[in-house]
Simulated assay, not measured.
Amino acid sequence: MNMSRLNDQQIEYLWSAAPYEPDWKRETRERLRLIAENCGVPLGQWLLGTRAIREVTVEHVREFEAQLGTDHTLRNMLRSITRRVRSQLPRFPLARLAIAVERSANPINPDLYTAERLRLSRQLLQAMQAGF
C-alpha cells in the first residue's frame, strides 16, 4: 500500500467487512463512506481512492474525526479502517478510540448558585462548624 493514490484492491481491503462482523457494522461503514465522499476532507478522499496524498498526518485524521462529531460508532469504524491501513503502513496515524459515556446531568445549576447564595452558604457552614 503506497501513500500516493489507493488502487481498487486496496480500497476493497480497507472497506470490506471483517470475518464474523455484525450486520450493523455494514450500515455504519456505508454511512462513513458517504461522509468521506461528501465532506471534502483529504483523508476521506484518499481512503476512497479519489485523491493522492504524499503523507497522511495526525492532523488529517483529526480533521476527518471532526467531521464525524460525537457519533462513537462512526469514529470507531474510522479507527478500524485506519488500523487496517497501519497493518500495511506501520507509521500511519490511527484515529482515536471513541467510548460512549452516559452521565447524569450536573446537579449544580449555576443559575441557582449565585455569588450571594454562595456567600450565605459559606456563612451557614461557618456557623455550623462553630456550633460543633
Rank of each mutant, 00 (worst) to 15 (best):
Q45I: 01
L32V: 10
F132K: 10
T70C: 03
E55M: 11
P19Y: 05
E27R: 13
E30A: 13
P107D: 03
D8S: 08
S121Q: 15
T50Y: 05
V101T: 10
I35G: 02
L124I: 12
A52M: 06
F132Y: 05
T50M: 02
R51N: 05
G49Q: 14
D111S: 14
R122N: 10
L120K: 15
N38P: 00
R86S: 10
E21Y: 07
I81P: 00
Q9I: 05
N106T: 04
D23H: 13
Y13S: 06
D71S: 08
Q123M: 09
T82P: 03
A95I: 06
L78F: 03
L89T: 09
R103F: 11
R62E: 10
Y113N: 12
L48P: 05
T70F: 04
N109D: 14
I53Y: 00
V85D: 02
N106E: 14
A127K: 09
N38Q: 13
A95W: 01
L78N: 05
N106D: 15
C39A: 05
V58E: 15
L32T: 05
M1Q: 01
L124N: 07
H60R: 01
Q88W: 12
L118R: 14
A130S: 12
L43S: 00
L74R: 06
E12C: 03
F64Y: 07
E55V: 15
E30H: 09
P93L: 09
H60S: 08
G44A: 05
Q45Y: 00
R26N: 12
Q88D: 11
H72R: 01
L6R: 01
E27F: 15
A66I: 02
R86A: 11
L43D: 01
M77E: 15
Y113F: 15
P93T: 10
W15R: 09
M1F: 09
M128T: 09
A100E: 11
H60C: 10
R33K: 15
D23V: 15
F64D: 03
P19I: 00
E27N: 13
E65C: 07
N7D: 15
L14M: 10
I81E: 00
L120I: 12
E21L: 04
L32H: 11
H72G: 09
L34S: 11
L6P: 02
D8N: 04
Y20N: 10
I108G: 03
D23P: 12
I35Q: 06
A100K: 13
R51H: 04
P107H: 02
G131I: 02
A127H: 02
K25T: 14
S80E: 03
P110F: 07
L125W: 01
G49A: 11
A18Y: 15
T82K: 02
G40R: 03
R83D: 14
Q88S: 11
I53L: 15
L14S: 05
G69W: 02
Q45H: 08
N2G: 12
E63C: 05
E12P: 02
I81M: 05
